[in-house]
Write a protein that binds this DNA or RNA. Structure first.
Lengths: 196, 196, 196, 196
DNA sequence: TATGAATGAGTATTCATTCAT
DNA sequence: GATGAATGAATACTCATTCAT
């Protein structure tokens, strides 16, 4: 929208984005109120509309921003991990991120369902992109003969989806005392399987 | 709400419920329009409000109805299955149900996210209830020494959640040609684990 | 919109229409406020929207209503008039109507200019229709050899437009003391050319 | 507003005025957008507000400018005309101007209706001023005994108003094939009564 | 002096819920 | 009991005007 933004403008756009993320995460797309978002961001409504075309655009940008941040951090934690620990670290990475950025995390997890039809495809593309790092890691595991030769693309989806869902499933969420129990089950089943 | 409903009233309530499910599944909670639901059900708006307290109530009852139907059918398919096939059959059961009742399935899967705060707890309780059948099955497997002694409650959540999520993840949905590939990965990893 | 309206509903619609006419006449289309119109009509905003699709529709219906009323009354006054008096009576009819229904009159006169593109054609058609009575009258005059054989359609427009414009031209409006002076000029000029 | 404007400033003000006229003529007062006007004029919004107090002021100045131009040209065409041709030439002058400056012409014709209350009186004064030339012409006609001694002020208004209205009345507009027919009627009716 | 980013009052329209018939 | 007309709170978005740079 702008060729060049001043430092101030970049900060301002970010302030709006943060307020939007907060609102979308807690209240969802429909209940979120542009007026309140602007107020919380400390800017006028008109200003918000200078930086974002409309509510949908603001929503999409919010989700995108959160995904970028989240997968950046999760990716880092997986960088120097051995394959035996991979599943456990992935699980922890999700849970940690969830604990520290609950709103952000929820927004990403719920995004597709709330998202207006038009953005869905683009969002899927974005998601695929983010998964590439994790995928690469596992492919190396296969080459080194440590990881079974299952369909990795699908596996990654499973891991990712599961980690997310655990966060959303209230009674086994990271706040729970059961955390270790949950993690153990998750890691065990994934690493060694269900059947004896 | 009523001490006794006549046959006619029961039918009427059901007609409203069906119309509501259809609308909520396709359009979600916020976009769904009470007026249209009543019209599609062939009753007046006032009548709808005799049977359901408000929009939230109607939504909750809709989801409940769908869950009852869905887990009844999935439960049946798991009744006489050996443990080695358990994961595969569960997977198929979900996918089959999805294929035949796509809207209903989506409604159940998305319910929590759209649901107003107040109903969330109750919904979780409901979900737990439904999982009991599957849980019982696996517990027998443990007793018989065929299934590993992992935390089954958590395992059931994993299985269930994953099955659902596959339906929602566009490019591995049951319509895809990749169905068998997806199933194989799912079953393999769950039954035998990721590491060699 | 409604197959049948109850007496109450007809009254209600009329109340809204009256309030709308008042507002549109005084403030014009753009400045008029749906909220205030509803309030002045003593109904809720939602009710207004039951009877009229949107602001444009309300505007168009308002103008139509005024035209019907106005030309009905002007038409009556022209019914039993001899050709020698025709121009004078037409002039008076306009001025009288203006005096008693200033708002209405102004609304009709200004309608086309404020009207959204889409309704303009339909409005022109309506106007033509209204002119037919006056036209018929003059045609008889021609047949009877009392009125010159000029292009009557055009003449009618001239007469009509002029009468209207006099009302809108502040310093010669019917309130002015100059009224008789104005009328005399109008009648003289037209008659000298008009009568054989 | 400024004690002295530099050449540059005069040019700049004119550029803004031209852009405003264009916009007001095409879209009317309310739909016209200050932002776009400034952009089309190639200046910043702030600059526009240095030269014109507000939107209303800009509108008024736009109309004034158009009237000056228009009556200057029409006045010229009437300078050396005999009284027998006067009505016809006046009619043609209007029509010609309309054809070549349709937007401008419409703006002048519609101005009063769109104009905010406050400017209306001043606008009427302006209009009177413009009519003086034509009036003087006719007064000479009376002195020379060629023109009837009707109330000339009123006559001028009639002539002027009618000419304008013809332009605005769609199906007899100057573009139409009927133009000659219209003109003949106009001239005949007026002259027959007007000339001794 | 020129600019255009920031502002927020203002407004058409929708839709859950009520209640008179 | 059943109906659907009436209601008005709620909300995204625009645009004239200001003012810091």
């Amino acid at each position: 929208m702008f060729f060049k933004m001043t430092k101030n403008q970049i900060e301002r756009k970010l302030k709006i984005l943060k307020a939007a993320i907060q609102s979308f995460a807690v209240s969802g797309f429909h209940i979120s109120d542009i007026d309140k978002i602007a107020k919380n961001a400390g800017v006028g409504k008109g200003t918000l509309y200078r930086y974002f075309q409309n509510k949908e655009d603001l929503f999409f940008e919010s989700v995108k921003y959160c995904m970028d941040e989240m997968y950046e951090e999760i990716g880092k934690k997986l960088e120097n991990v051995g394959y035996a620990d991979f599943v456990g670290v992935l699980f922890d990475a999700h849970m940690d991120y969830y604990r520290e950025h609950k709103d952000t995390y929820m927004l990403v997890a719920n995004a597709i369902i709330q998202m207006p039809e038009t953005s869905v495809d683009f969002f899927h593309e974005l998601h695929k992109e983010k998964m590439k790092v994790i995928l690469g890691k596992l492919e190396n595991g296969v080459k080194e003969g440590v990881v079974k030769d299952v369909d990795l693309e699908i596996l990654v989806k499973m891991l990712n989806v599961l980690s997310q869902l655990f966060c959303l499933t209230k009674d086994i969420a990271p706040e729970t005392d059961d955390y270790e129990r949950v993690k153990k089950t998750f890691v065990n089943v994934f690493n060694y399987g269900l059947l004896k």
